[in-house]
């Protein structure tokens, strides 16, 4: 195996240039090039580029696959292989908002399954519950909502949790979740428990792709609740601390070469 040359340097690409009227214009290409420049090898930019593609179209389309293949000199099959591996890449156009309900064991037992079931019913039409990765409303239109059941979202102390466009809504109940989606459908943007002020799925996908451009207001959105700091608060209340550090702890000597 050649350590220096990545395998794809020696493989064929079948991507052809996209037509001039493709949704991936100069602006997207410029962003793609900035992302690629961050990495020692261009292929590392593929995951961010697929997020970028989703920020343009709300899902990964065949054209999006071709766009990535073109930018990175990959075959379209190589890009498809990656796009179909990761759950965050959607194959169908997403709604304005993506609502992800954690239904992993712990959230499920505390109400996650009930929340997901309730939302499916509530967002379904004519008695047919909405399915995983299905959309209420028309993708691309205001108030449209795609729902999914998600695996552990790493917020178990706030169980049950759900996310809207990956911003956290903690300690939910079926009732609070219904209220939340109803507000979303009305075009409102209720603030997440933890996260930036709510935008929409495509905006967040762009932030995931080009995170270095995020605006300060979003950065300063809340990140902690009582649960997060419970231990730290309890320690403060009780006066518990870690042992005091010595004033000037010496580093070990340079180890002798064996």
């Amino acid at each position: 195996m050649t350590a220096e040359a990545p395998e794809e340097a020696g493989t064929a690409s079948d991507a052809v240039p996209l037509p001039a009227d493709s949704p991936f214009g100069v602006d997207t290409t410029a962003k793609a090039q900035r992302i690629i420049a961050l990495y020692p090898q261009s292929r590392s930019a593929l995951l961010p580029l697929l997020h970028l593609v989703q920020s343009v179209q709300g899902f990964v389309s065949q054209q999006g696959v071709t766009f990535c293949a073109n930018q990175l000199g990959l075959s379209t099959a190589e890009v498809s292989a990656v796009a179909t591996f990761y759950t965050m890449y959607k194959r169908k156009p997403c709604g304005e908002h993506l609502v992800s309900v954690c239904t992993n064991t712990l959230c499920a037992v505390l109400g996650g399954d009930a929340i997901y079931g309730k939302l499916r019913e509530h967002l379904g039409e004519s008695g047919k519950p909405l399915g995983h990765e299905e959309t209420a409303g028309t993708p691309g239109e205001r108030g449209s909502i795609t729902i999914e059941h998600a695996e552990c979202l790493a917020a178990c102390d706030f169980a049950p949790v759900l996310q809207v466009n990956y911003e956290y809504y903690d300690n939910q109940t079926p009732e609070s979740a219904v209220e939340l989606v109803d507000a979303l459908r009305r075009g409102e943007k209720p603030a997440p428990t933890r996260g930036a002020p709510l935008t929409d799925f495509r905006t967040v996908e762009e932030q995931l792709a080009v995170g270095f451009d995020t605006d300060p207001e979003a950065v300063n959105g809340p990140s902690a609740s009582a649960e997060t700091v419970r231990g730290a608060q309890l320690a403060t209340d009780r006066g518990w601390t870690a042992p005091t550090m010595p004033d000037d702890a010496a580093l070990p000597p340079v180890p002798e070469k064996r």
Binding site: P40, L47, H51, Y86, M88, S100, A150, L153, A154, Q163, N165, Y166, E167, Y168, R194, G195, A196, V204, Q207, L208, G211, F212, T214, P216, A218, V219, G221, S223
Partner: peptide, 23 residues
């Protein structure tokens, strides 16, 4: 001389904070 912080994608707020801190 190169360090990557690989964060799961479902936590954009965490990614924002990291990016801002790196900046």
């Amino acid at each position: 001389h190169h360090c990557f912080i690989y964060v799961r994608g479902e936590v954009p707020h965490c990614i924002r904070r990291l990016n801002a801190a790196v900046r």
